[in-house]
Measured scan of single mutants.
Amino acid sequence: TFELKGKVGKVVKIAEDHYLVESEGDKWIAYSDEKLSLGDRVMVVDVDGLKLKVKRIP
């Protein structure tokens, strides 16, 4: 299986209740415990079905 946990991506869209993150050339629906901005670099900390939980990284 394709393992996304630990992968790095970038926030490419902000929606009302989720983010769109591009990682490894694909776009994924993501959510975070912190507020993210367009262009933020993020790391995948968990995968919930087809949704990614991400956190901001420097």
Rank of each mutant, 00 (worst) to 15 (best):
V8L: 14
W28L: 08
W28Y: 14
D17R: 10
A15S: 09
K7V: 03
R56W: 14
K10S: 10
E16V: 09
K53T: 14
E22L: 11
K13D: 13
G9E: 01
L20Y: 13
T1H: 15
V12M: 10
D46V: 04
V12A: 05
M43T: 13
D26W: 14
R41D: 14
K10C: 13
E3H: 02
I57V: 08
S32K: 07
V21M: 13
D46I: 04
K10V: 07
A30E: 00
L4W: 04
A30F: 01
K35F: 09
V44M: 02
Y19Q: 01
S37Y: 12
D26V: 11
S37R: 07
I29L: 11
V44L: 02
L20H: 14
R56T: 12
S32Y: 01
W28K: 02
L50K: 08
I14V: 11
V8M: 05
S37N: 06
E24I: 04
Y19W: 06
L52V: 07
L36D: 00
K53N: 12
K53F: 12
L52A: 07
K7M: 05
S23L: 15
F2S: 15
K5V: 15
K5H: 14
D33P: 13
I57H: 14
H18W: 11
D48R: 03
V12F: 06
G9D: 00
S23E: 03
Y31H: 12
V54Y: 01
V54Q: 00
K55C: 15
V8K: 06
I14P: 02
K27R: 06
T1Y: 14
V44P: 02
K7A: 11
L38A: 11
L20C: 10
D48V: 12
A15F: 09
D40P: 00
D40E: 10
V54W: 02
K27T: 08
V47F: 07
L36G: 00
K55S: 14
E34I: 04
I57T: 12
K51P: 03
R41L: 13
E22Y: 07
H18G: 13
E3I: 01
A15P: 03
S37V: 12
K5E: 15
E22W: 06
S23T: 14
V11E: 00
G39C: 08
P58Q: 10
G49T: 07
K53D: 09
T1N: 15
D17W: 07
D17E: 11
L52W: 02
L52Q: 02
V11K: 00
E16H: 10
T1A: 15
G6Q: 01
E22I: 11
W28C: 03
S37M: 10
V21T: 03
L38R: 06
V21G: 01
D46S: 04
D46T: 03
K51F: 13
K55G: 07
G25C: 05
M43Y: 08
G49W: 05
K51R: 12
K27Q: 06
E34K: 04
K27Y: 11
H18C: 12
E16F: 11
E16Y: 08
D17Q: 09
G9L: 08
I14N: 05
L52M: 03
H18E: 11
V44N: 02
V12P: 00
S32R: 03
K10A: 11
K53P: 01
L38E: 12
G39M: 09
I29H: 14
L50E: 05
A30S: 14
K35Q: 12
D40G: 03
V45L: 10
K53E: 14
Y31I: 12
I29D: 11
Y19P: 00
E16L: 12
T1L: 14
D33R: 06
Y19H: 02
L50C: 12
E3S: 01
T1V: 13
G49P: 06
I57F: 14
L52N: 03
D26R: 09
G6E: 03
D26C: 14
L38H: 09
V45N: 04
D46H: 04
G39R: 07
E3W: 03
V12N: 05
E22S: 05
T1P: 15
H18T: 13
G6L: 01
H18N: 10
M43G: 03
A15M: 09
D33M: 09
Y31W: 13
A15E: 09
D33F: 09
P58Y: 09
L36A: 02
E16C: 12
S37P: 02
Y31P: 00
W28V: 04
G39L: 13
K35P: 09
V42M: 01
V47R: 03
R56S: 13
R56D: 02
K55T: 14
A30Y: 00
K27G: 06
K27A: 09
L36T: 01
L4F: 03
L38Y: 07
V54A: 02
G9C: 15
H18Q: 10
V45G: 03
L20Q: 06
E24P: 03
E3L: 02
L20R: 06
A15C: 10
K10N: 08
V42T: 04
K53W: 12
G6R: 00
L52I: 09
L50W: 13
E24M: 04
P58D: 14
K13Y: 09
G6K: 00
D33C: 11
L20D: 05
V47N: 03
F2V: 15
E3T: 01
L36R: 00
W28P: 00
T1R: 15
K35V: 08
K55E: 15
V54F: 02
S32E: 00
D46M: 03
V47E: 05
I57E: 14
D17H: 11
V8D: 12
G25Q: 05
L52S: 02
L4A: 14
V12Y: 06
I57D: 14
Y19R: 00
G6F: 02
L50V: 07
G25R: 03
L52C: 04
G49K: 09
G39H: 12
G9M: 15
Y31F: 12
Y31M: 14
K13C: 10
E3V: 01
G39S: 11
K7F: 03
K7N: 04
K35W: 10
L4G: 15
L52Y: 02
D17I: 09
V12L: 11
Y19F: 08
D48F: 13
V42I: 14
Y19M: 09
K27F: 10
G49R: 07
D26S: 11
D48C: 14
M43Q: 06
Y19T: 04
Y31D: 13
V45S: 05
A30M: 08
D46L: 03
D26Y: 14
V45K: 03
G39T: 06
V21P: 00
E34M: 05
K10W: 08
E34L: 05
D17T: 13
W28A: 03
V11T: 03
G6T: 01
D26E: 10
L36I: 06
L50T: 07
K53H: 13
E34S: 05
V54S: 01
E24T: 05
S37E: 13
L36H: 03
A30V: 13
D17S: 10
V11S: 00
R41N: 11
D26A: 13
A30G: 06
Y19N: 02
E22P: 00
K13G: 11
F2T: 15
P58N: 07
V45A: 05
V44G: 02
S37K: 05
K13P: 00
E34D: 09
L38T: 08
F2A: 15
I14M: 12
G39W: 11
K27N: 09
I29W: 12
V54I: 07
V44S: 02
V8C: 08
D33L: 07
L20S: 08
L4I: 14
G49A: 06
G25V: 04
K27C: 10
L4S: 14
K55I: 15
V54E: 00
S37T: 10
L20A: 05
I14R: 08
G25D: 06
H18D: 11
D26I: 11
I57N: 10
G49Q: 08
M43W: 12
I29A: 10
R41P: 14
W28T: 02
M43L: 14
E22R: 05
E22N: 05
R56F: 14
L4V: 09
I14A: 10
K53I: 07
R56P: 14
K10L: 12
L50G: 11
K35D: 07
S37H: 05
G49S: 06
V54C: 07
L4D: 15
M43D: 05
D33S: 07
V47A: 04
D40W: 06
